[in-house]
């Protein structure tokens, strides 16, 4: 996955965190949802962003929101 796309992913997550008053740094593998930094409402915004900006088709019984738990997992999903 190109570095520019990973940067964009990080920017989206940073915006979601900032909207919740969280401006602390996060690593590639940090658990964002299970770790409690983002909630299910943030997940919906993240899914919409991935669909519109990365043309990701999310749906079907196999989708599991834990696939979006960290930048590394999102990168895997988009690869």
């Amino acid at each position: 996955m190109p570095a520019s796309q990973i940067d964009r992913l990080r920017a989206i997550v940073s915006e979601l965190l900032a909207a919740r008053g969280d401006t602390a740094a996060f690593s590639e593998t940090e658990s964002l949802f299970l770790g409690g930094r983002l909630d299910s409402m943030a997940a919906t915004h993240l899914i919409i962003a991935l669909e519109t900006e990365f043309n990701l088709e999310i749906g079907g019984p196999d989708f599991d929101v834990s696939a979006l738990d960290s930048i590394a997992e999102m990168t895997d999903l988009l690869a």
Partner: peptide, 26 residues
Amino acid sequence: AEFWNRYFYYFKELLVDFFFFPAFTR
């Protein structure tokens, strides 16, 4: 919405996992 996340996390997770996301992604 924040109250549900803070009040009864695992019940909220159950509703989100089995109802919210399946509907949201379809």
